[in-house]
């Protein structure tokens, strides 16, 4: 089980957190102007990367803040965490 460095609270046990899937998928500002295909792309299609993934986590049993994480999904190594709205610290 991971130790996650919440950007607001510091290092905590994984059991305090919930994962929220791929990060940086912006909800379209004008959904009604999208085609069904484009809407499906937003709603369901995921990179599901094996390797370095940018993803969302929520400190659900802590400060309740959402933040981003860079994690290698092939070995679960956490590379970085950063706040929502911030640029990823790793390319």
């Amino acid at each position: 089980m991971f130790i996650i460095n919440c950007p607001y609270c510091g290092e905590r046990e994984q059991s305090e957190f919930k994962a929220g899937g791929e990060a940086h998928i912006v909800r379209p500002k004008q959904p009604t102007e999208l085609s069904d295909d484009e809407w499906a792309e937003y709603l369901f299609m995921r990179k599901n990367i094996k390797g370095i993934q940018f993803e969302r986590w929520n400190h659900s049993h802590g400060c309740r803040k959402w933040f981003n994480m860079v994690r290698d999904t092939s070995n679960d190594e956490i590379k970085a965490v950063y706040k929502m709205g911030e640029k990823p610290p790793i390319e």
Partner: peptide, 10 residues
């Protein structure tokens, strides 16, 4: 609840 290819869970 997270994506992983490590074949390990919590």
């Amino acid at each position: 609840d997270y994506v992983s290819y490590s074949q390990k869970g919590s």
